Simulated assay, not measured.
Amino acid sequence: MNHANLNDFIAIEMELTNTGEVDIDADGTVDRSGNRINALTLSMRHEPINSMSNRTNGRRGAAGWFTGPTSGYDATPDADGNPWDVPVIFSGPSPSGLTAGAGPDGVPWAPDGSRFLGNTMNRGRRYYYDIYAGFQFIAAKQGTLPAGGSSTGQDDKLTIYGSDPVGDGAERGWYTTVTKDSDARNNAMIEHRMSMGVWFDGDAIGSHSLDYSSGPLETVGNLVPDPNWFDPDAAGIVAGAPLSFIGAVRPEGERGQPRGDMKYNGQFDQNWEKDNETNWPNAPDEASDWDEGFSIQYNFDGKHRSSIGPFDLEVGETMNVVLVEYGG
């Protein structure tokens, strides 16, 4: 991959086996045996700050706030017409320096000489830091990791809703969750709900909005299935009980893209690659555009989150997952 020069990457392979033994309070004592895992999700998150330096010993150094810590998701079609499926984290201008609606297609914009894209450490320092970074789950497979090579040839581990774990071709990235979370620390249930947000009705839980917060996820009545993938009128659906959604999955051929997370909400706080070739003279070619997805800024009010699942695992069953971290 060389998407926007994000060509430095680390692939992380994880092998997960359900031993059937549960230690609920992590005190070293098994509280339950023979336990089937019904809805496993995996998630990675990052708090964009982009306004601090590190000392040579790794400790926090100076701080210079008022840059624009930003994350987003690029779903623009590639040369084959398939979504790039690339979450990104980057630095932009201070939100206070943006004018609403001044950019292409109404994107917030800063005047010439004030954009400072890629700068960090504001308050006079403004160190150049033109780096995009990100992470995304790209595969989930059945069985153990091979002794050598990759698990690419192994069968996919489907979600409990019968979907591909990630999505392939024109559906690339459809089934993972990418969002700004609500920073709900020490609440395992909220964490789990946010990690499978793509499967909920996004209008009900507010996940289409850039004002997303934990409030809607804490209201059980909002936790209903996405109507594109599920039949919302199916018998047996219990709000707040994702396992009850399994019987409501639409037949193959009638399923649409689940849209409970932010990936395709089309709202941009900052986007300097929006419709380049149609809006600016001598602009980069179309391959450099960022026309689909979202971007959102941070103010110590949440984390950028990428997640995969949910999966079930019988006692003794093993699966493996591949996560990629990248930058450039």
Rank of each mutant, 00 (worst) to 15 (best):
Met189Tyr: 08
Val178Leu: 02
Ser150Glu: 12
Thr120Met: 10
Phe116Thr: 14
Thr120Val: 14
Tyr175Gln: 03
Thr159His: 01
Met194Phe: 06
Asn186Pro: 06
Thr159Ala: 14
Tyr129Glu: 15
Tyr212Val: 08
Gly124Lys: 00
Ser151Phe: 04
Ala204Glu: 14
Gly202Cys: 12
Gly162Leu: 05
Glu191Asn: 13
Tyr175Lys: 03
Ile205Gln: 04
Pro165Trp: 01
Asp203Tyr: 06
Ile190His: 07
Gly202Pro: 01
Asn119Val: 15
Asp203Pro: 02
Gly134Gln: 00
Thr177Cys: 13
Thr152Tyr: 12
Asn186Ser: 03
Gly134Ala: 00
Ser214Phe: 11
Ala204His: 00
Ile160Asp: 14
Ile205Phe: 02
Gly149Thr: 08
Tyr175Met: 04
Asn187Cys: 03
Val166Ser: 04
Tyr161Phe: 12
Gly149His: 00
Ala184Tyr: 07
Arg185Ile: 07
Thr152Glu: 10
Leu217Ala: 15
Asn186Phe: 13
Lys180Leu: 11
Lys141Trp: 09
Ser214His: 04
Asp130Ser: 14
His208Phe: 12
Ile131Glu: 06
Arg185His: 14
Gly173Ser: 15
His208Gln: 08
Leu145Ile: 10
Ser213His: 02
Ser151Cys: 03
Glu218Ser: 10
Ala204Ser: 14
Ala133Met: 13
Ala170Tyr: 08
Thr120Leu: 15
Ser195Gln: 09
Phe116Met: 09
Thr177Tyr: 08
Leu117Trp: 06
Phe200Ala: 02
Asp164Lys: 02
Arg125Thr: 08
Ile131Trp: 15
Asp183Val: 14
Thr159Pro: 00
Tyr127Cys: 12
Ser163Asp: 10
Val198Leu: 14
Trp199Met: 03
Met194Cys: 09
Gly202Gln: 07
Gln154Trp: 01
Val166Leu: 07
Trp199Arg: 00
Tyr161Lys: 10
Leu210Ile: 09
Asp168Ser: 15
Leu117Ala: 05
Tyr129Ala: 10
Asp211Arg: 12
Arg126Val: 15
Thr120Arg: 11
Phe137Asp: 00
Tyr132Ile: 08
Gly124Asp: 15
Gly143Pro: 10
Tyr128Met: 09
Ile138Cys: 00
Ser195Glu: 09
Asp130Met: 14
Leu117Ile: 13
Trp174Arg: 13
Phe116Ile: 06
Phe137Glu: 00
Gly206Met: 08
Asp201Glu: 15
Gln142Ser: 11
Asp156Gly: 04
Ser207Asn: 07
Phe135Glu: 08
Asp156Lys: 05
Gly162Asn: 12
Gly148Ser: 14
Gly206Tyr: 15
Phe135Val: 07
Ser207Tyr: 02
Arg126Asn: 14
Asp201Ile: 02
Ile160Met: 03
Ser207Thr: 08
Asp203Val: 11
Val166Lys: 05
Asp155Arg: 11
Tyr128Cys: 02
Arg125Met: 03
Ala188Ser: 12
Ala204Gln: 09
Thr120Ser: 10
Tyr212Phe: 13
Trp174Gln: 02
Trp199Asp: 00
Phe135Ile: 02
Gly173Phe: 04
Met189Phe: 12
Phe200Thr: 01
Ala204Tyr: 01
Ser213Pro: 06
Gly173Glu: 02
Gly162Tyr: 09
Thr176Lys: 06
Asn119Leu: 13
Phe200His: 11
Tyr132Ala: 12
Tyr129Phe: 06
Met196His: 06
Gly215Ile: 10
Ile160Tyr: 10
Ile131Leu: 11
Asp201Tyr: 04
Ala184Gly: 07
Met196Phe: 07
Ile190Leu: 10
Tyr127Asn: 06
Gln154Arg: 04
Thr179Met: 11
Trp199Cys: 01
